[in-house]
Amino acid sequence: MEAPPDNDVLWARSLHFTHRDGSPALGGVSIGVREGEVLAVSGPRGSGKTTLLSCLSGLTRAERGEIWFNSAPLHTLGPVARERLRRDRFGWIDPAPLLVPELNVWENAALPLMLRGTSRRRAKAAALEWLDRLDVGDRARLRPHELTQAERQRVCIARALAPAPAVLFADEPTAPLHRADRAHVLRTLTTAARSHGITVVLATHDPETAAVADRTVCLLDGRRVHTVHLPPVGESEGRAACSLSA
């Protein structure tokens, strides 16, 4: 078995995954994530980005293929060990800010730390610090429903960054935001990750978002591609007929 390269913190080879209903998701994706980089996984909707991220983070188990994290195999771990690894070393940002509605903002951000067994005071200090850094420090005592969507998403990012994970998986973190908020959120995310040496795997279908990354990996229909050649959207007759000016 070939050992992974030293500078790759996370490394996967020929991952295959099929959904339970039989629709194919990943067909032999190989990927290497270097230490401390921001890697964008781009591709249109339905190209398997989310599945790849959840396989890499151990949320779902790939059918075939290998995943190595820090030179230790992840694909052979059981669910409990994967859960522990996810809690201790990985962070996850959802496409939508899913906060626990009954906790206030700083409690939400401190929750992963508290789940790891950090004392309440230290968890609160770390959470408040990250919230300040992400410009939502003044909202720390509000409940999630009182925030705007962009603020909630920033709280989610603070929650993911507060435990200082080794690898942060961000699944379309800017999907529900306007472009101004999108740029702000991305900037804060990448700056924080770079300054703390956190490796980020960023799934996105937006080329602008992918531009902030150090490296981009393209997926198409569950396969890794180097050049995307999609047929250009031509002006068909139906379009012309439907247009209002015609």
């Binding site: 959904h19 339970r20 209903d21 629709s23 194919p24 998701a25 339905g46 989310t50 599945t51 959802d94 496409p95 939508a96 800010p97 899913l98 906060l99 509605p101 009954e102 409940r143 999630p144 429903h145 969507q149 909630r152 379309e172 999907a175 529900p176």
Partner: peptide, 21 residues
Amino acid sequence: GAGPTQADGRADGAAPRPAPP
């Protein structure tokens, strides 16, 4: 969305606003 679960998760991601308590 490939599977129903994925489709649900995606739809969930499209417009999630926490309901006021």
